[in-house]
Computed example of a mutant assay.
Amino acid sequence: MGLVAGYLACLLGSLLCVFAGAESSLILLTVGMVFVGAGLAATWQARFAAIDLADERYRGRAVSVVMWATAAGAAAGPAVAGPAGAVAEMLGLPRLTGGFLVAALGALAAAIWVALGMRTDPLLLARQFNPTRSPSPRQHRSALAVVRAHPQAAYGILAIASAHAAMLAVMVIAPLQMERDHNGLEMIGAVIGLHIAGMYALSPLVGWCTDRAGPRVVTLTGAVMMLTGVVTIWASPPLLALFATGLFLIGLGWSCVMIGTSTAITTALPLDERPAVQGLSDLVMGGVGGVAGAVAGVVVGRWGFQPLSIAEATTLGITVLAALAIQRRNTHFS
């Protein structure tokens, strides 16, 4: 039901944004975007729902399937922007509200699909197969208490938070840097599309590698890959081919860290203690990423792009250290 609630909140937020566009209200748009963000939160949490009933040998692949499905939405969104704008104008609405109409339909479809297709919650079903007795609600510990008791989960959260911060910082600034280097909108869109492809398109392969080599190896590989991408971008301007290569490496490295840490966090925790920590993981990841995106603009505005690259490399150093702290093979819980 948590996923359904997230998608319904996104539906409400999307409709608020459409109304805000019709009324030219910045306040309504801001409120609506907060609710739209709930849809993204539900999408992130869906990867954990995929793990609940997955065999421990295939948890990485279970996460990767959800990540791969996200690629379809990421590719389809920009493609329908034009037709959606035309539909909005036919309805007497501003053209730019068309995207929110699509988001509303997508959120409604997702909510119905999850509500009908997951009528028995995977977590509740997994508890039925769990041979250990579930604790009573009064015995449930807070997410922070669980993390303190299971350091492996803490390492996973630290790794994905630092990697996500580095990825968002460069993703926010990259289009502006490319425009500064006199690249057209079409080329900027193509390069960002390549970055997004790196984030999602190879997810099944990353999931397979996670199941074969373990989350520690894949997370560490992703961190090193992101570091390589940051160095490539730092050395590239104004060479567009190197810049695009660096962004692709950052996207693919982020995919490795995301799938590796999601598997590591789940594997490190008993079944009944997973949801709270999984939510905490995404809260920290999103919060740190938002701050990084905002700070990136200030850094580039005052000191330029290269100091930002140095800051990203330092942040990814934290990812490397956290990945090294993850056990080669975590203790498996049912």
Rank of each mutant, 00 (worst) to 15 (best):
A166F: 02
M167P: 09
A169N: 08
A169P: 09
V170I: 15
V172K: 00
V172D: 12
I173Q: 08
A174I: 07
P175N: 06
P175M: 07
P175I: 09
M178I: 09
M178N: 04
E179S: 14
R180K: 13
D181Q: 13
H182P: 01
H182K: 02
N183P: 03
N183K: 12
E186N: 02
E186R: 12
M187L: 14
I188H: 02
G189F: 08
A190T: 14
V191M: 13
V191Q: 06
I192A: 00
I192S: 02
G193A: 13
G193R: 09
L194E: 01
L194Y: 09
H195N: 10
G198P: 09
G198S: 04
M199R: 03
M199A: 04
Y200S: 01
Y200K: 10
S203F: 06
S203L: 08
L205W: 11
V206D: 05
G207F: 03
D211Q: 03
R212C: 04
A213L: 15
A213D: 11
G214A: 05
G214M: 09
P215H: 03
R216L: 08
R216G: 02
R216D: 07
V217G: 00
V217I: 14
L220T: 06
L220A: 11
L220K: 05
T221C: 11
V224Q: 00
M225E: 11
M226W: 06
T228R: 00
T228C: 15
I233C: 14
I233Q: 06
W234A: 15
W234C: 11
W234H: 12
A235E: 07
S236V: 09
S236C: 07
S236R: 04
P237M: 13
P237I: 10
P238Q: 01
P238Y: 06
L239C: 04
L240T: 12
L240G: 07
L242N: 07
L242S: 13
T245H: 01
G246I: 04
L247Y: 04
L247D: 09
F248C: 12
L249W: 03
G251C: 08
L252S: 03
W254N: 10
V257P: 04
M258D: 08
T261F: 05
S262D: 05
S262V: 14
S262I: 13
T263G: 00
A264K: 03
I265E: 01
T266P: 02
T267N: 05
A268G: 12
A268L: 11
L269S: 00
P270Q: 00
L271Q: 05
